[in-house]
């Protein structure tokens, strides 16, 4: 049936909505593009065979054209939704992606991510009268400067902003400045205790 592969892409995005970004489905995209090329070729042949004023091939052409537009729409939706998810990753993880997520992106997406990352960094630097303001920091308004955190996995040595070095071992608790350990809490290395 026409447009089936394209629908598969959309379903894949829908299924993985709450979880990890799935790997770029190169195979499926290629199949859709092949289908589109074939449809376009058939249409072109029919148009060439049509004598002026004759409507014999008209419904067929119309049908294929609709399928072409449908496929195009599905492909664009797939790509755009992936981009939106990748954009959110930048805000969650910072400018370096964990390798297990990075391997699910295709090359143009990695390039886009790098460019978006750079744009965001440039904009952040231009804020706050020259001193710069990291927009991804302090997503929730902080209450205290220092927080108590429990370590959930072995992380190794971690240097706090003032220059002190703490060793983050599993199941130890620390009293750290909010600004420096926020990122690790977001990544699930530390857990905030109240």
């Amino acid at each position: 049936m026409l447009g089936e592969k394209a629908l598969e892409l959309i379903k894949e995005m829908e299924r993985s909505k709450d979880g990890k970004l799935p790997a770029y489905n190169d195979n499926c995209v290629r199949l859709v593009l092949e289908e589109m090329t074939a449809l376009f070729q058939q249409n072109q042949d029919d148009v060439n065979a049509t004598v002026a004023g004759e409507a014999q091939y008209y419904p067929g052409i119309r049908l294929r054209h609709a399928s072409l537009e449908r496929n195009k729409r599905c492909l664009l939706a797939y790509l755009y939704n992936r981009l939106e998810r990748i954009r959110d990753l930048r805000w969650d993880f910072g400018n370096i992606l964990p390798p297990e997520i990075r391997e699910n992106l295709c090359d143009p997406e990695i390039e886009w991510f790098a460019r978006y990352s750079k744009n965001l960094a440039t904009y952040s630097r231009s804020l706050g009268e020259g001193s710069g303001l990291d927009l991804t920091h302090d997503i929730k308004p902080p209450k205290n400067i220092y927080v108590e955190v429990r370590c959930l996995k072995d992380y190794g040595e971690f240097e706090v902003e003032e220059g002190d070095v703490v060793v983050l071992q599993k199941n130890t608790t620390h009293y750290l400045p909010m600004s420096s350990c926020q990122h690790l809490i977001r990544l699930g290395v530390l857990q905030q205790v109240d």
């Binding site: 979880g19 969650d92 997520i101 997503i139 977001r186 990544l187 699930g188 905030q192």
Partner: peptide, 16 residues
Amino acid sequence: RRCHIITSIASTEQSG
């Protein structure tokens, strides 16, 4: 009065 507490991102919990 717990809304200031930061939690980890949902996707990292699964990758754990």
